[in-house]
Design a binder for these strands. Structure first.
Lengths: 266, 266
DNA sequence: TCGCTATTGATTGAAAATGATCGATACGGT
DNA sequence: ACCGTATCGATCATTTTCAATCAATAGCGA
């Protein structure tokens, strides 16, 4: 196992669980505690985690809750623009799938006044947002709660998604490139996203410019399976063109444009 | 278990419950009272809590979390007492089912520092409360969102519950009498509650005094299927006796009694 | 092939955390 | 006010974890 690989796993573990123990990680990674301590020491110097006796914890600066709301803060105007463009693709009477993520959450918030719609989601935040939408039928997939993203993942989620069929799936991720398609750091989340994509006739990826051209550990959906990408105008044109040439319908949301929304809601 | 992890659990517990006892925490965290005392002393020095005999309380400065306790509304002290009694029935390593309702929600809030537990629920509020419980694995059933009770119901919920088996189910309802058993106004909710009860070896009903002797439209679980009823001391003795004679183990929570928590040990 | 370097594993003494015992103290019931 | 019980604090022993130094291995270039 490569050192970078190991450290990425450590970082992932810290991010998802908040704490890691030296002995436990040494066992799961199949290495010695000495090496683990060295890794932790190096990562602590870079501020990725805080060393404690027997392990390490997430630095307070990116603790659980803050990280998520912080994330929803960054590039929020772009996310809102992307959500508005996606909103224009939804028709009354549709059944759609919404994955976890701040962008899909922004889309869910636009649906409060939608006339007739069925939404399947594995995100608790999306479900919560749609609590306010009286005419939207909300179906939550089952599954194991993953705290870091406020969503349900795992085999149970995949099973319940497999039983469904929707016209469109709106999903997100941590990176999107022409070669790797949509990707995310966690294998569990990746498998779940893949199931969501598999249940829809049309797969729409919502990804702001910070994700375009990025590649993270686990591929969730290959580019060939993705019909539409909605991103914002700050995305690298090069990466965008490569994606376009791979056969994806790329749409760029202009920050500030509102007319997409006019018809259905207001 | 890491020291930091332990202290974080203590902090969570203090924050959500307002008070912790040394003996109880030592039991649930699987450590000795000496260590707990040391933790409490250190945390008291940092102002995270105030030391008392046998435990610690929340510092006045951090006062009540907004709307945490008060929000439960009517009969909230009774509900809390019922929840504490139910808490004593849960053992580390258990798998339990939690239905929707404010009383089961109160129980969920007591579980923030529980050492090892799997909770299956169809209530979004319960899932949200357990977001703070890092050592509790939360499994949400799938299903259609019913807004009025913030819970998932319907055939999908029943299917996903059927695939599971738990040691105990803690469920609630709108009425409970010896003849009709547990009942609720909605057939959909009733069917879901019935599925929950069917997946557990032991069915525990949490019902405050306002529900005892009441009968509403749809029976969820017949009396014969219910092993234990936990209610409060304001319940009508007559109705309670009838239930007891029907073979249900009736336990009455005394408002204000806190040693029931220590009863988790006994 | 040789030697260099980076990474990993082992050993050891120090430090920290935990657990146990014991005398002192506070609380609750009578 | 009294006494029994439970809790507390302090000290010591034990276990675990840590950091530093040294040895071994693999990769790399000359």
């Amino acid at each position: 196992m490569l050192a970078v690989e190991r450290r990425r796993l450590i970082a992932e573990s810290v991010r998802s669980r908040g704490v890691v123990s030296v002995s436990e990680m040494a066992e799961t990674l199949g290495t010695t505690e000495i090496t683990l301590r060295r890794d932790l020491r190096a990562m602590a110097k870079d501020g990725l985690l805080v060393r404690t006796h027997g392990g390490a914890v997430q630095p307070a600066s990116l603790g659980h809750e803050p990280s998520y709301y912080e994330k929803s803060g960054q590039a929020s105007t772009e996310k809102a623009a992307i959500a508005r463009l996606a909103f224009g693709m939804i028709r009354p009477g549709d059944s759609i799938l919404l994955g976890p993520g701040t962008t899909t959450l922004a889309l869910a918030r636009l649906l409060v006044a939608f006339p007739e719609l069925t939404v399947v989601t594995n995100s608790l935040l999306v479900a919560q947002a749609l609590m306010e939408a009286p005419r939207v039928e909300v179906i939550l997939t089952g599954g194991t709660l993953r705290r870091s993203i406020h969503a349900l993942v795992g085999p149970a989620t995949e099973d319940s998604v497999r039983a469904l069929r929707a016209s469109q799936a709106f999903i997100s991720g941590n990176g999107f490139s022409a070669e790797r398609g949509l990707s995310t750091p966690s294998p569990l989340v990746a498998a779940t996203d893949r199931a969501l994509a598999g249940a829809a006739q049309q797969v729409v990826v919502l990804a702001d410019h910070t994700k375009i051209g990025q590649e993270t550990m686990c591929q969730t959906v290959p580019t060939a399976r993705i019909h539409t990408l909605i991103t914002d105008s700050k995305a690298q044109p090069g990466a965008l063109n490569a994606i376009r040439e791979a056969g994806v319908d790329v749409r760029v949301a202009e920050v500030g444009k509102r007319e997409q929304i006019a018809g259905a809601t207001a």
